[in-house]
Amino acid sequence: MKERKIVLNSLGYDSNLYIYQDKSMFNYSVDTILLGNFITINSKTKRILEIGTNNAALSIFISDRDENIKIDALEIQEKAYELAIKNISHNNKNIQINPILGDFNLFYKEHNKKQLKKYDAIVCNPPFYKTDKNLPRLTSNKEMLIATHEIALNLEQIIFGSSKIIKEKGYLSFVLPIERMVDCCELLRKYNFEPKRIQFVFPRENENPKFILIESRFQSGWGTHFEKNIYLHLEDKNRHEYREETKSLYKPKKK
Rank of each mutant, 00 (worst) to 15 (best):
N27H: 05
H149W: 03
K70L: 06
E215F: 03
A121I: 04
L234P: 02
I33L: 09
K210Y: 00
E150M: 11
D120G: 05
V182M: 05
Y231A: 13
P126V: 10
G36T: 05
I33Q: 01
T32C: 07
N208R: 12
L145I: 02
N68K: 10
F104G: 04
Q96F: 00
E78H: 14
A56V: 08
E110V: 03
Y171T: 07
K133D: 08
D14C: 09
E143Y: 07
K169E: 10
P99D: 09
T148F: 01
P252W: 05
F193C: 05
T45V: 03
Y129A: 02
S89G: 08
S15H: 11
L232G: 01
I151Q: 15
N27M: 09
A152C: 01
L83V: 12
N134T: 01
L234Y: 13
L101M: 05
F202C: 03
A84S: 15
L138C: 13
S163C: 10
E179M: 13
P203Q: 00
E3G: 04
Q96W: 03
H225P: 04
E227P: 11
E179C: 01
E67F: 10
Q96M: 01
P126S: 15
R197Q: 09
N238V: 12
I39N: 00
S162M: 10
F107L: 08
N238A: 06
D236N: 12
K109F: 14
N42A: 09
K113R: 08
N55A: 06
E215L: 01
S162C: 10
